[in-house]
Design a protein around this nucleic acid. Structure first.
Lengths: 147, 147
DNA sequence: CCGCAAGTGAGAGCGATTCTCAAACTCGTT
DNA sequence: AACGAGTTTGAGAATCGCTCTCACTTGCGG
């Protein structure tokens, strides 16, 4: 399900409305930036695009967008949180995390493996009384540059 | 590969020696606590066992043990980091994370699925020039208590 | 055009983790 | 059994992402 950027904006606007929030230029710029990024940017990466961006507004707007369900906070062992568009606005993917430099890359795995995994995890979750909403699969390793 | 507690202590001692550190009673107590825990404890959990433990020492010793490769820091979206024994001192497992209350439970998946996953991820990593050392698979959902 | 609700920016505040440093301990050596 | 060099410890200070506060601005309904 590959969604065009125009559709993304429409969806974001709709979800913000549901939560009683506006789709302001600042927020649009953030979404644009996240949609264009090849890798989930950390806050410094976002601020670097325009040094006079107030950091508090960026954080606040990311929180609003996260709350609206269009942005996801990616947890890494690095010092900064990273942000990406919610999964239903992009293709389902996983992360390659370099344990040496902290670099994060997006990857996809074969669809057949995804469905095997979904089936397996659903079963595991059911056995333990968990209602699974999603999974998080990351590969931890050493990237080409650090090797 | 299930390792007895006695062996764990021997391994920990050996790895600490390699890094030029001693296996002090405080560190032994930490390892003991982690080995007994059913779920990776956060710092408050550890401190709760003995309220007069100085938090700075706990943090420092966890860092030392992590550096020696016997303790692993588990990243969650919660406010506290959690700690568990390194994977080669326990059985390979994954985590069920409740997105509502932050509770973390250990789970294992069928061995057949593990090996399928290993093969798939190795291939993916090779294609992208990453040297994979490990993977991290977490199930995010709602636990029985929160449902 | 008014007014109110929502958004913005600058800085203060917060809280988990890390750092500092003097005192207490360990262990091989006399 | 005491010594001394090097570690470990504990209490508090310091750090630093991130969140909160609040006065000001902006934008949409009436």
């Amino acid at each position: 399900m590959i969604t065009g950027t125009a559709d993304v904006h429409a969806i974001v606007q709709a979800r913000l409305l549901e939560v009683g929030q506006r789709y302001t230029p600042k927020r649009r710029a953030l979404i644009e930036h996240l949609a264009a990024a090849a890798t989930p940017p950390a806050l410094p990466d976002i601020m670097a695009t325009d040094p006079k961006l107030p950091q508090s507004s960026v954080y606040r707007n990311l929180a609003v967008l996260e709350h609206a369900g269009v942005v996801r906070r990616v947890i890494t062992e690095g010092e900064f949180a990273r942000f990406e568009l919610a999964e239903d606005l992009t293709a389902h993917h996983h992360h390659l995390i370099c344990s040496s430099c902290g670099r994060v890359e997006d990857v996809t795995v074969p669809a057949s493996f995804e469905s095997t995994m979904d089936r397996t995890l659903d079963r595991v979750a059911r056995e333990t009384g968990f209602a699974t909403v999603s999974h998080r699969l990351d590969l931890i390793g050493i990237c080409r540059a650090c090797a």
